[in-house]
């Protein structure tokens, strides 16, 4: 009887091509960015001017920042829709502080913005992680609540550029070696969080939770604590993003950042973070934001109606999701076919 000698496993090494595709994903976005850039450059060479390049980098910086936090949340199989409102609230409150304390140091302003966001994130985290309510509904509720609070506080009074100290405005508009400060902050955040997500045990828990919540419990992952911290970090980064928004635009109304959450989620998904959690990287999300912004500005530079911009973004979103489906369904299909050949091995 040769039955016993048959190999137990027929999982061949080459099916790891799925792993390769996933790595390839980030490269594909980089290529897409370069293609869009090149195509636009041929049509309008001013697209490569210093000012244009700086705008290409600083434009998506705040979205990148928020996308980093959103990635953490989505990886845990949740979603944070309140980031746009948190950004708006933080931007206004920090601006209001400048109105009352014009000599507040820049770093302190950023830190306060971050704290304001973190408080909102903590509320989200407590309700989702500990009261076990679905994140979609909780953060949608928070989106409206925070926006409402924002409107009450603002009460029709805008923050104006004249009320913001020049040192803070420089942060939003300035550059070092031609690279905008905003972009450096975004890159720094991506680098730190991205490295941590690969390297530290608690960060790996995020992936475990999103990949299989029940298994995460059994593996001893502190699911509630981790989900809570993902929301807290997302809130904090949205708050920091608010302070930077103030620095970039210097004017804040009660509508600041409304609808932003959708840009952020779109960037994250285009960047290859699975909407059902468990996989994706911060770097991918940042590249996703960069790509969407590049397309946005490319269409402007090419003189295409800005209405196209949203259609293109939507199309990319569908491509990204179709790709995810292909990867997960494809993996199982390959194995099923190979399973039928079991015994030939």
């Amino acid at each position: 009887m040769s039955v016993i000698d048959q190999p137990l496993t027929t999982t061949p090494a080459r099916t790891s091509f799925i792993t390769k595709i996933l790595r390839f994903r980030e490269l594909a976005i980089v290529v897409a960015i370069l293609l869009v850039f090149a195509a636009t450059y041929f049509k309008n060479t001013s697209f490569a001017s210093t000012a244009s390049l700086q705008q290409l980098l600083s434009g998506p910086s705040i979205v990148i920042l928020l996308a980093v936090g959103e990635t953490l949340v989505i990886v845990t199989r949740n979603v944070d829709l309140s980031v746009g409102s948190v950004l708006g609230l933080s931007a206004y409150l920090v601006g209001d502080l400048f109105v009352h304390y014009p000599h507040m140091p820049v770093v302190l302003a950023l830190f306060i913005g971050l704290l304001i966001g973190m408080v909102c994130g903590v509320v989200n985290g407590v309700i989702v992680a500990y009261a076990r309510m679905p994140a979609l509904v909780v953060t949608l509720g928070m989106l409206y609540i925070i926006r409402g609070i924002d409107a009450i506080i603002v009460n029709g009074v805008q923050i104006l550029p004249s009320q913001i100290p020049q040192s803070f405005i420089n942060l939003g508009a300035g550059a070092v070696l031609g690279i905008p400060y905003l972009f450096l902050i975004a890159v720094g955040t991506v680098a730190i969080v991205g490295y941590s997500m690969r390297t530290f045990r608690p960060a790996r828990d995020f992936y475990a939770i999103g990949s299989n919540p029940e298994a995460a419990v059994l593996a001893g992952v502190r699911v509630q604590r981790r989900v809570f911290s993902a929301f807290a970090i997302s809130g904090a980064l949205a708050g920091l993003g608010g302070a930077l928004w103030l620095a970039e635009f210097a004017t804040v109304a009660s509508t600041a950042g409304s609808g932003y959450e959708l840009n952020v989620v779109a960037a994250v998904v285009v960047g290859g973070v699975a909407i059902f959690g468990g996989s994706g990287t911060v770097l991918g999300a940042a590249l996703g934001a960069l790509l969407l912004n590049t397309i946005d500005q490319a269409l402007v530079a090419a003189g295409v109606s800005s209405f196209w911009n949203q259609a293109v973004a939507g199309f990319l979103l569908l491509v990204a999701i179709a790709f995810d489906r292909y990867v997960s369904v494809g993996a199982e299909k390959i194995l099923r076919v190979e399973g039928a050949h079991r015994g030939n091995a």
Partner: peptide, 13 residues
């Protein structure tokens, strides 16, 4: 057992 540790767990029998 010859399983490749670097492979994703998705799709394993």
């Amino acid at each position: 057992v010859p399983l490749a540790p670097g492979r994703l767990a998705r799709g394993l029998s």
